[in-house]
Simulated scan of single mutants.
Amino acid sequence: MNTLFELYQNLGITLSALVIVTFLMAGMVKGVIGLGLPTVAMGLLGLAMLPTQAAALLIIPATVTNVWQLVAGGELRALVRRLWPMQLMIFVGTGLGTWWLGMGSGPSMTRALGGALLLYVLSGLFLPPLRISAKWEPWLGPFCGVITGVISSATGVFVIPAVPYLQGLGLNRNQLVQALGMSFTTSTLALAIGLFWRGALGGGEMGASLLALIPAMLGMMFGQWLRQRISAVLFKRVFFIGMGLLALHLLIG
């Protein structure tokens, strides 16, 4: 039991409250639009703690919510056959990034996180939807997997370029939700292995991450309720604007 609360005791009341609020918000965003939990968590927690600490906290909430998203829909077998090269290369890219870059604690890594978030925001707000030809998939999928892995190993953000790529495949709504869940699950597990290898994911961090699952799940359930009552397009636009301001703060802070 001490292991569960050890990290929060070290963080203190204020930062522990920030963790709870962050995962409530991150879960809510994921419940409404189907993605964004690691992005919101890394962005907000990155304001007050080291990126490695923030990444360790999100491992269990991200894994559980992504697996939940992955198994719902009934298209898993076909998606695995289609997307396994990309998933494999996410592991390769994360391994290379962990060995080459790591997730440092200096201002350069904070700015890298801000840069990754800003790229995600700009692509979401201004780029038209991609249309990826089937003949490009055999090489473009693995390439996007490697780049996604390298970026996530340095910043804890899984969305660039995986999300625009998956959105460009012409999948139906259920397939896209499952494909995103698959990609995020792979990225989370690969990141967890990288953090463990670097000694940043031990019993204390896993216990703290387990407790962070509670507000994340509550936020996700509220987000799913909210999704039925507001425009998802409006919510997504407000989300991108807020994340853009956060990214700019990380870049210039």
Results as ranks from 00 to 15, higher is better:
Thr148Trp: 10
Asn172Gln: 10
Leu140Lys: 01
Pro161Arg: 05
Phe184Trp: 09
Leu119Asp: 06
Thr39Leu: 15
Leu189Val: 14
Leu246Trp: 09
Lys30Gly: 03
Val163Trp: 06
Val19Gly: 08
Leu118Trp: 03
Met221Cys: 09
Gly253Lys: 12
Thr155Leu: 12
Asn10Pro: 03
Thr155Val: 08
Ala72Pro: 09
Ala17Asn: 13
Arg229Trp: 04
Val159His: 03
Glu75Arg: 12
Ala232Ser: 11
Ser231Ala: 01
Leu140Met: 08
Ser133Ala: 15
Ile214Glu: 06
Met1Trp: 12
Ile33Arg: 04
Gly156Pro: 07
Gly168Ser: 08
Ala154Gly: 08
Ser209Glu: 04
Leu83Arg: 00
Val238Leu: 13
Cys144Asp: 01
Ala72Asp: 12
Gly202His: 10
Glu75Gln: 15
Gly104Glu: 12
Ala216Pro: 03
Leu130Asp: 06
Leu88Pro: 00
Ser209Ala: 11
Ala112Asn: 03
Gly34Arg: 13
Leu189Ser: 01
Ile132Trp: 07
Glu75Gly: 04
Val29Pro: 01
Asn10Tyr: 02
Leu201Phe: 05
Gly207Val: 14
Ile132Gln: 02
Gly12Thr: 10
Gly95Ile: 02
Leu169Pro: 06
Val163Leu: 15
Ile252Trp: 13
Pro51Phe: 03
Asn2Leu: 10
Trp99Ala: 07
Tyr165Gly: 06
Ala78Trp: 05
Leu44His: 07
Tyr120His: 12
Ala216Tyr: 02
Gly170Pro: 10
Met25Thr: 15
Pro138Asp: 03
Leu15Arg: 08
Ala48Asn: 09
Ser152His: 12
Leu245His: 00
Gly194Trp: 00
